[in-house]
Amino acid sequence: MASPYQSDSIFWVEVDRIKPNPFQPRKVFDEMALASLAESIRQYGVLQPLTVTRKEIERPEQGIFVEYELIAGERRLRAAKLAGIAAVPVVIRNGEDDDRMKLEIAIIENLQREDLNPIDRAIAFSRLANEFGLKHAEIGKRVGKSREYVSNTLRILQLPQEMRDALAAGDINEGHTRPLLMLIDRPDEQKTLFTEIVTRKLTVRDSEQVARRIATDKVRKTDLTPELLLLERELTEKLGTRVRIEKKEQGGKVLIDFFSVDDLAHIRSMLAHTQVAHPVPSMKAVAEGDALVAGETPSAAPEEPIKIPEQQKEDDDLYSIKNFSV
């Protein structure tokens, strides 16, 4: 079988003659990581050759012009330019590679190095599916992953742009996308969960528990009266965390979510503040004239003497000891 590489040899090509891969799936390059790689290249050079294709282009009055198109190694190429390297080692693939093959090779290289963030990977899979008509199982076979892996990765693209940007930036991780996707048909709750993940640094497990509870709320809320729903919402806003009221045949219970000791301390302080602002009336009260002592409840009105009916009084006198003699 013929090798896909030209002469199986390594060539040195000027960096300015290498065009970027138009099918490069990776869109985000860490500047600090590139600077670190550039420093390494200054000291040791480019240790692994780049993969390119070679094209001969005839230009009027200039003869044959050769240009190279990068397939794999854009990070090394960028770092080499930063390091001021004039030429880099390359292996040249035969020019008959089609666009799909260029995209596949770029994806596979990045996956092997784990360089692609989840969004770039999802976009690359989407291109293979939409532009080249590959099924999820075929994509998985080409990149060494399962069909389920490909399908779940593509679902990430259903998230709102804000959440996709946070995932690409590393503010949330790929595991957080599962609970967010559970609420894909409930955008308000999905947005609330996303905010809590970012601000409270929720773990994936905590996020999934919250998402499951929210997903079942629609059924649960049919058991609550409008007054209880209003109270639940007011408590949620007041305490700054999720509050749920569960009604039973007799009474019920109030469930308050917290995700750290700091959360619990905050909830306790809010409840204490509410108690100070609206104290529970004391059983004892002190009154000074018509004015009330602060923090006390009005004292009970002086008890009036109980009037005994005349007939009852006569009956009582009948059995009084003064009417008996020894």
Rank of each mutant, 00 (worst) to 15 (best):
Met1Gln: 08
Ser3Val: 00
Asp8Arg: 09
Glu14Phe: 07
Glu14Pro: 07
Arg17Glu: 10
Lys19Gly: 02
Asn21Val: 00
Phe23Thr: 00
Asp30Pro: 01
Met32Lys: 15
Ser36Glu: 15
Ala38Trp: 03
Gln43Val: 04
Tyr44Glu: 14
Val46Asn: 15
Gln48Asn: 14
Pro49His: 11
Leu50Tyr: 04
Ile57Asp: 05
Glu58Phe: 12
Glu61Phe: 09
Glu61Gln: 10
Phe65Lys: 11
Val66His: 10
Ile71Cys: 05
Arg75Val: 06
Arg76Met: 05
Arg78Gly: 02
Ala79His: 09
Gly84Val: 02
Ala87Met: 10
Pro89Gln: 03
Asn94Cys: 00
Asp97Leu: 00
Asp98Ala: 00
Met101Cys: 00
Met101Thr: 01
Leu103Ala: 15
Leu103Asn: 07
Ala106Glu: 04
Glu109Lys: 07
Asn110Gln: 07
Leu111Gly: 11
Arg113Ser: 08
Ile119Ala: 09
Asp120Leu: 01
Arg121Trp: 02
Ala129Met: 05
Asn130Gln: 14
Ala137Phe: 09
Glu138Pro: 01
Ile139Asp: 00
Ile139His: 04
Gly140Leu: 05
Lys141Thr: 07
Arg147Pro: 01
Ser151Trp: 02
Leu154Glu: 03
Arg155His: 11
Leu157Asp: 07
Met163Ala: 13
Arg164His: 09
Arg164Phe: 03
Ile172Asn: 06
Gly175Tyr: 07
Gly175Ser: 08
His176Cys: 02
Thr177His: 07
Leu181Asp: 08
Met182Val: 08
Leu183Tyr: 03
Asp185His: 14
Arg186Thr: 08
Pro187Asp: 09
Leu193Tyr: 12
Phe194Leu: 09
Val198Leu: 15
Leu202Ile: 03
Thr203Ser: 15
Thr203Ile: 01
Val204Ile: 13
Arg205Glu: 15
Asp206Gln: 15
Glu208Asn: 13
Gln209Phe: 04
Val210Tyr: 11
Arg212Cys: 01
Ile214Trp: 08
Ile214Asn: 06
Thr216Ile: 04
Val219Asn: 15
Thr225Phe: 06
Glu227Phe: 09
Val243Thr: 06
Glu249Arg: 13
Gly251Ser: 10
Val254Gly: 13
Leu255Pro: 01
Ile256Asn: 05
Asp257Cys: 01
Phe258Pro: 04
Asp263Arg: 11
Asp263Ala: 08
Ala265His: 09
His266Met: 11
Gln275Ile: 11
Val280Asp: 02
Ser282His: 11
Lys284Asp: 13
Ala287Met: 14
Ala291Gly: 03
Leu292Asp: 05
Gly295Ala: 12
Gly295Lys: 11
Glu296Pro: 01
Pro298Phe: 03
Ala300Ser: 12
Ala301Thr: 11
Ala301Val: 08
Glu304Arg: 14
Lys307Trp: 10
Ile308Ser: 08
Pro309Glu: 06
Lys313Met: 11
Glu314Ile: 10
Asp317Glu: 14
Leu318Ser: 13
Ile321Tyr: 12
Ile321Met: 14
Asn323Ile: 02
Phe324Asn: 08
Val326Tyr: 12
